[in-house]
Design a protein around this nucleic acid. Structure first.
Lengths: 149, 149
DNA sequence: TTTCATGTAACTTATGATGTTTCTTAAATT
DNA sequence: AATTTAAGAAACATCATAAGTTACATGAAA
């Protein structure tokens, strides 16, 4: 089943952005992610709406962090990306008034809710500055020269 | 993102099968699930390989439960369906030796592992007989007449 | 006023699950 | 023995949707 790696990739980008002097263009970020500027804009738009990044048009423009990394958690970015569910597991809806289907779906749903709660809680506990720790002086060659890093 | 409802649907089917006198044909199960006999065979094949159901060819053949419901857990069927991961969230692999990407991916992965462990543990605690309880005398009209139930 | 960069809509492509067709194998009924 | 019923399996078609692409509008700086 298809995976959504936007969270991982956006976190990676945000931490590199934190080291950049100025804004990063969609073009530049797209090269880093081996993708395409429009896809970057699409994805970053969600983060901008929630106030984590800002975008500036025109010459010298691009994307910038709107707050320090320690104020951003994995949960924040996860939510900003707006993916409905974290699970590939879904419930059937063929016979919604069959009591057996109801019992089956309730059992599965209860477990999914519990597991998702734990996951979101843990995501909320990790802020991006912690992930960036220990690499403070590291440049970001991937930003400048494609797959160098 | 696409959902995989095979677990929910197969559990539903297995519990109904438990009430049937004889074997259920792929055709019959397919009608119940509004799908197609080949898809049913494909899905049931995994359950057969793990010993939860048996199949018999020819006249009067079809699918039967190979053990009582109390010996089968949600985890058993989940595993038998052979889905690799329960999460839609994936990790990036663009810069596997970038320490930032590594840190990001490790943080996400740790959370996914913890949440998946909880989920699998809970799935293991629920056996199918519990889901079937309280509906002992209920017939399975959905098996006989399409969407009636 | 030209260049650079985002914003947005519309469209195309790629991928993977699901659905379908066709034929084979095997077992029970006639 | 021939027929019918049903699973097994391979090959192919369809569908949903995320990702990628194109094209053009908007806005800001050089």
């Amino acid at each position: 089943m298809r995976k959504d790696s936007r969270l991982s990739r956006m976190l990676h980008v945000l931490i590199h952005m934190d080291r950049l002097g100025g804004p990063a263009t969609s073009e530049r970020i797209a090269k880093m992610l081996s993708t395409n500027p429009v896809v970057v804009r699409r994805t970053m738009a969600g983060l901008r709406e929630q106030g984590y990044v800002t975008s500036v048009k025109g010459h010298g423009g691009g994307w910038s962090l709107a707050m320090p990394l320690h104020k951003i958690s994995l949960l924040d970015i996860h939510n900003a990306l707006g993916e409905s569910s974290v699970f590939t597991i879904g419930l059937s809806d063929e016979y919604t008034h069959c009591p057996i289907e109801q019992a089956v779906n309730k059992a599965i749903k209860d477990v999914l809710i519990e597991a998702e709660s734990l996951l979101l809680e843990r995501f909320g506990e990790v802020s991006l500055d912690v992930l960036a720790e220990g690499f403070v002086d590291l440049p970001a060659p991937s930003f400048d020269e494609g797959k160098g890093y």
